[in-house]
Amino acid sequence: MDIIVFVKRVPDTSEADINISPDGLHIIEKDLVFDINESDKYAVEEAVQIKEKLGGSVTAITLGTDSSEDVLRRCLATGVDQAIRLTDEAFRDSDACGTARVLAAAVKDLKYDLILTGVQANDDLQSQVGPVLAEYLGLLHVTVVNKLEIDGKIARVHRELEGGVEDVLEVRLPAVLTIQTGINEPRYVSIMGIRKASRLEIKVRNAADLSLSPDGVGQKASQVKIEKLFIPVSNKATEILTGSLDEMTQKLAGIIKEKGGIS
C-alpha cells in the first residue's frame, strides 16, 4: 500500500501566552514551541502501521518554509520512507482551497492508494484541507476517522460523531481520510530513527516544479482573508477569586455549597 500523509508544523498554544502582532494579522511566534500538528502525528503513525502490516511505502508531505523540515525529519525518523516539502513565496497566505490546490499538484504524479491527514490543524482550526484536497483530486473522503482497517481495495472506517456515536463505512480506495487523535499510540522518536532520517534527502518542490500558476495560490487567490485577529473578551462576568490560597479556597467551598455542589 502506498500511502501519502500530509503534515503541518504548528505552534503549541495549549499552555502558552499568545500575543498578536501590531498589524493584527498574525500571532507573535517568537517564544512559541513548534511541533507536528497533533492529529497529523496520529495520521503518520496509522500510515506507518498499515505499511508495516501490508508492505508498501509512506510519503510525508508538508507545505512550509525550511523550518517545516523539523516535522518531516520527525516523520522520517518514525517510519516514513520519503518526505517532500512544498515551498514558494507564491504559496504564502493561501486559504484552505489554495493550500489544497498546491497539495493536489504535489501528488498528481505520485502513485498512491490512500491519502491521510489529521482532522484539523490546531493553529487555524479550519478542518478543510483534507476534504477539499479530495475534491480537487476527484476522490471521495471520510473525516474524523477513529478506526481504520484496509481490506484490499476497501477501507473500513469508523467515523466519530458527537456523543460517542460512530458510523461504520466502507470506502473504495484511493480516498482521503482525515484521522482523529486517539486512533493509535504514536511511537517515540528513537536515536536509530534520527540516524536513518539524517541519511534521507528531503525533496523540495516549488510552484514551477508543480506547474502551478501563482494566480491559483497564495494571497492573491485567497477567497477568505483575515481582516483582524483579536483576543476574545468574555461577556460573562466571571468572578476570579483573589487572596491567599486559604482565603480563596474557603470562599470557593462556600460557593460550592451555596450552589448545591455538596450532597
Binding site: 525529519r73 522518536v189 536515536i191 530513527g193 534520527i194
Partner: peptide, 14 residues
C-alpha cells in the same frame, strides 16, 4: 545542528 535538535526534541518528548 538539526540532528542534535531532533535528538533533544526526541528525549524531551520521552
Amino acid at each position: 545542528s538539526k540532528e542534535q535538535m531532533d535528538i533533544q526534541q526526541a528525549v524531551r518528548e520521552f
